[in-house]
Design a binder for these strands. Structure first.
Lengths: 193, 193, 193, 193
DNA sequence: TATGAATGAGTTTTCATTCAT
DNA sequence: AATGAATGAAAACTCATTCAT
């Protein structure tokens, strides 16, 4: 087994542990046990717990990014925007357990610049797509000229993030994705001329 | 000093520590030092670290709730809704440091039923106000009859929560409150007939 | 309530706690709670945990001693000996829970001279009765002249103590009092000419 | 040094500590110091203080059992019984310090099923030997047919246990092994036809 | 590469006792 | 006599990391 495969094996085990116990309660020993390797074995591939955590988070964000299908760039900006959000809803729903884990990583972010940076990349990439489509809608006269594309993009992103978080913290309080979808459609309606 | 005041004194000290160090890096010893009492003194009032954390969170949510001024019930539903959201923005801004702390507690919530329950109460109370106003707007013919008050209320709540979270995790990425305000106004515009 | 009654009230509560939790797991707080008084209240009457324990043990031994009915000094030495042992069996059976507690105190004895001394008094008092009766049997020609009264007395005492202990440590292994009784009768048979 | 040897090294150190300080006053730190290892090292082999105590007790009972030499099965049942008891006396005398420690463990037994079970095994093994010999004596017509082998076996066991206990609790009150021996011989005399 | 015994500073918690009121 | 808040040394145990093999 190659070194890269070993790393992935360790990350996979650690991910399962984190999903089950949460980041606060997960110990290096748990990760080691789940890896199927020994202490020294794991430390050979990840020189510290923090490095392993970054490895897990990176993998998580990659999965998230890869899950987003390419949206066909045909149709009006509004239609493409709706498709993009629907795609996002699917990703959130299908990666529910991973997203719960992402919330755990949030707690690390303020104290770990590297984690914060990883999150930022993920945010910016999605934001760029959203604001791009909104700008396109304005240019094509579909959305009001007074619309601030960046603000609305960040609002949409916050809407979905906030809803995902609420689901984690207080299960069964929101109904996903219908609540998010309904609100997003209302935002789009508000933007239309 | 009464027992109740002592509890508050301990909670206040712990809150400062938590804001500064985060919940993951805060040690019981930090809380004890900040309390001005001895180890046994603190444990006399809170029988474990977890109980103290719950005490802090409860106080936090109480502060949050109390910070929401009573909104005058004059004017149209739309006007009242805007006032309510502006008030919420003010609270988020003024309690920025507390909200960062709240994010820390979010992570605890999925593994601590008592914490989850506390959050739920806070959510429901704000949601009720929002959906009440939206319903009123529908009844008065200001908002579209097709609007789903609960869904939009939950969407608005998620919008603000998500934006608050983003600010904590990736500072300087969103501009608060303008982004939230702009998005909220667009939602309201989308609801209007 | 007089000071003496208060002391007894505290001792009674502590005795219940000790029976339930054992001496190793019983805390001063448990005694205080069981006493119905406050911390300071209990400490007013017993200046330390050790003093309270000695108070409990003393009371226990007094109960034990008082439980032994006076044996009528009529009949042969053998008959009186049998009556005395039957009486002892009854005491052991009726004070089973107290005796379990006594075992707990045994472990304290080697490290607490005052406790050791209390036990010694109890031992000596019962031993004196036993060896007195055996000596009487020898003098009256009922027991063999070669009998060593002190040795047999200590043997009988050890027999009952050992059986009591076994019952505490490994319940249901011995059948009391029949096993003890049977063995004691065999000892008496062995002493008879 | 193998893992098994390390365990034994830790047990040996802990045994010395327990003999010197008693089970109530012995701290985990004492065991750690006596082991020559570090805290983590000891906890690597015994996951709690209780588990270590069980390790010590198990070893103690094994020593006790192994110390009993095989009794030649020639001679009458009475002769073999006497040899067995003499052997037991020797073991008790030579392992005096270990037996004091056993008394300490008695106190743990009522609240620790695992400890209780260990004692039970030791009891049953010795009882089986005793009652077997007594039965043999009955069969061979040496002992009275009315003798109850189990009861007398348990009585003999209790006699020695009780005497051992008395020695620990009130030193110098009994004279061992002569008191036990004298009583045991009287029991045997009482069983003989 | 991999093993797993070992480290030890750090963590939460306990608990007999004191003392101002 | 009584209260109960407060003390603080000491207890058991944790856990990321190291290192000889």
């Amino acid at each position: 087994m190659s070194s890269e495969e070993r790393r992935q094996q360790i990350i996979d085990g650690a991910t399962e542990v984190l999903i089950e116990k949460g980041i606060v309660a997960s110990r290096m020993n748990d990760f080691i046990e789940a890896s199927g390797l020994s202490k020294g074995g794991v430390y050979h591939h990840f020189s510290s717990k923090e490095e392993l955590m970054i490895g897990v988070l990176t993998h998580l964000l990659v999965i998230n990014a890869e899950s987003m299908q390419a949206i066909p760039d045909t149709g009006s900006a509004r239609e493409q925007l709706i498709l993009l959000l629907q795609e996002y809803e699917k990703v959130i729903a299908s990666l529910a357990q991973y997203n719960r884990l992402l919330l755990d990583f949030f707690v690390l972010a303020p104290h770990t610049p590297e984690v914060s940076e990883l999150f930022k990349q993920g945010y910016l990439s999605f934001l760029a797509k959203l604001s791009g489509l909104i700008q396109q809608g304005i240019d094509e006269g579909e959305f009001k000229a007074s619309t601030n594309p960046e603000a609305i993009a960040r609002g949409l992103q916050a809407l979905y993030d906030g809803m995902g978080m609420t689901m984690m913290v207080v299960p069964n309080l929101v109904s996903f994705p219908s609540d998010a979808s309904e609100t997003a459609m209302t935002i789009i309606a508000g933007m239309c001329r």
